[in-house]
């Protein structure tokens, strides 16, 4: 479903900074991929390129067989609108809008009629368990609640792909785990393809596959058999080693 072919991203002219180098990989429909790597390894760059926000210097990104950087910017925006949801480390909610309004924002840019916006937003808030906080501004919500709102916002358009950039980076361990369970649930129950960028092995364990990115290159992609944090600790040393190296 998502295919990257020899994707490279180079910043600047002199000196050149190679953020990604010849990345080739494939993420199947409904799969949960964790991208791990130290900071500066190009994880976020990779996520933005997949999300159609950052044009690669070289290579091709195909979503459902469509080479997205051959589309013009409006067509790419439409693709994001319909197929992609973003979650960020710092939640990125609009401060002057309530939780419900924040969830409705992506609908403003879509063709979905205005009369259906609220209904869809409430449904999304319900999925993340936050209907009771709908009328609160982000400043009145806890970190975990804010991230739930941002997840509701990411899924309100019923996207098939969820791109999460360190979604638990600003949360404590317990809240972070709750958020991961929520993302996992969306992946399993709604069949949303998830690409998660993280440097935390305990969060990567929720994924089906883990890709390790170092200096802009994919070092390894490995499938994890059994998902869900704790169970993974009992798995083979090889898999542990993979997570630790990230």
């Amino acid at each position: 479903m998502i295919v990257l072919k020899n994707v490279s991203k180079i910043y600047g002219k002199s000196p050149q900074v190679v953020a990604l180098h010849n990345v080739t990989m494939e993420v199947k429909k409904g799969e949960f991929l964790a991208v791990m790597g130290p900071s500066g390894s190009g994880k976020s760059t990779l996520l933005y390129i997949i999300g159609g926000l950052l044009t690669p210097t070289k290579g091709e990104v195909l979503i459902n067989g469509v080479s997205i950087y051959k589309l013009n910017s409006r067509e790419r925006a439409k693709l994001r609108q319909e197929k992609i949801g973003f979650i960020f480390q710092t939640f990125e909610l609009i401060p002057y809008l309530t939780a419900l309004e924040n969830v409705m924002v992506p609908l403003c840019f879509s063709k979905i009629p205005n009369s259906k916006h609220e209904e869809k937003a409430i449904k999304a808030l319900n999925l993340v368990g936050l209907t009771n906080r709908a009328s609160h501004k982000p400043s009145e919500l806890s970190g975990g609640e804010q991230q739930r709102v941002s997840i509701a916002r990411a899924i309100v358009n019923d996207p098939s792909i969820l791109l999460a950039d360190e979604p638990t980076g600003n949360l404590d361990q317990k809240t972070g785990a709750e958020i991961m369970h929520l993302i996992k649930r969306l992946n399993e129950e709604k069949g949303i393809t998830v690409i998660l960028v993280t440097h935390d092995p305990s969060k990567a364990r929720f994924a089906d596959k883990v890709a390790v990115l170092i200096d802009g290159q994919i070092m390894k992609i490995e499938r994890l058999r059994n998902m869900g944090g704790k169970s993974l600790r009992d798995k083979s040393g090889n898999r542990k080693q993979l997570l630790e190296c990230a």
Partner: peptide, 8 residues
């Protein structure tokens, strides 16, 4: 954020 959510 708006752009990431599909605003052109």
């Amino acid at each position: 954020i708006f752009m990431s959510m599909g605003a052109d």
